[in-house]
């Protein structure tokens, strides 16, 4: 029997995995979003409203929230087309903070006091979602659309000139990512059974990005490794007491110096595929 302590950690890993995947999907088109906690917040609040106030079953509520957040993602994706690199990062950061302060002032759902009344979900439920979406991303990674995403990231001009609709691809990635982040939010709300605007701050967005960079930003499975490390490593450094986050930061820097692409990368997978087919 797993201790509640580990069950709690694993739930955090599952939720962080989904958040990291949402960053990964946008990053696949060469765009960096620092505002995905905003989409997560939208998902958390919307799902909670649907289950607590409207009595909608959780799974249906998650699907509705994902669709709504996805639509918002598409809307955000359009102005994002005009921005690149650090400017896009700043704009998405602004979006995330906007969402957070919206809920801070949204008294109908508790405002700064937060919102509660959700029913706790099992670890199995969280991981069913996390695994399903990880699998979905893994399948997509072998599809035509994923090649198109990568082409857009590598050279947008050349991509357009072989007939790829770069606008739809980039906006679509934003929409899909926003939907995934919303599911992470809905699960977060029903795991902690209490949410407040501070749960969806800038630091949360940074956690998502860190997990992707740490685990490997060129393969979806990297998000899994990154989420595991980001949650588990500080726990296992507990013997260092107050120094653990400093040591964790040091390990992160060391890792970026030695292996910039993250722990997993595509050539690693290719290597195994070669061996399998050989």
């Amino acid at each position: 029997m797993m201790s509640t302590y580990y069950a709690g950690l694993l739930a955090d890993v599952g939720i962080l995995l989904l958040g990291a995947l949402s960053v990964y999907i946008i990053l696949a088109t060469g765009q960096l979003s620092l505002g995905n906690a905003g989409f997560m917040g939208i998902g958390a609040y919307l799902t909670s409203y649907l289950t607590v106030t409207m009595g909608v079953p959780l799974t249906l509520a998650l699907v509705i929230a994902a669709a709504a957040s996805g639509a918002i993602g598409v809307i955000i994706g359009f102005p994002a087309l005009r921005l690149r690199g650090i400017y896009l990062a700043m704009a998405t950061l602004g979006f995330g903070e906007m969402v957070r302060s919206f809920f801070l002032n949204f008294d109908a759902m508790g405002g700064a006091g937060g919102f509660h009344g959700m029913r706790h979900v099992s670890l199995g439920y969280i991981w069913t979602w996390a695994a399903a979406i990880l699998l979905l991303v893994a399948i997509l990674e072998h599809s035509q659309i994923w090649l198109e995403l990568r082409a857009v990231r590598d050279d947008e001009t050349a991509a357009a000139l072989v007939g790829l609709d770069t606008t739809t691809i980039k906006v679509g990635a934003f929409g899909f990512a926003a939907a995934v982040a919303a599911i992470a939010g809905g699960l977060f709300a029903h795991h902690h059974v209490y949410i407040e605007p501070g749960n969806f701050s800038f630091e949360r967005s940074i956690d998502f990005v860190l997990a992707v960079i740490l685990g490997g930003s060129t393969v979806g499975a990297g998000a899994l490794v990154g989420a595991l490390l980001l949650v588990m490593l500080p726990e296992h450094l507990r013997f260092l007491a107050d120094w653990r986050f400093a040591v964790f930061g040091g390990l992160l820097i060391a890792m970026l110096l030695v292996r910039r692409q993250g722990i997993l990368d595509r050539s690693l997978f290719r290597f195994f595929e070669f061996r399998r087919s050989a």
Binding site: I139, L140, L147, R150, A159, V162, G163
Partner: peptide, 24 residues
Amino acid sequence: FGDMTVWEHLLVAQPHSDFTLRRL
């Protein structure tokens, strides 16, 4: 394209219709 193999270059440029399940 930066980190694509030769094969991926040929695959990504193949014409296809816009909204089909095929691409997924």
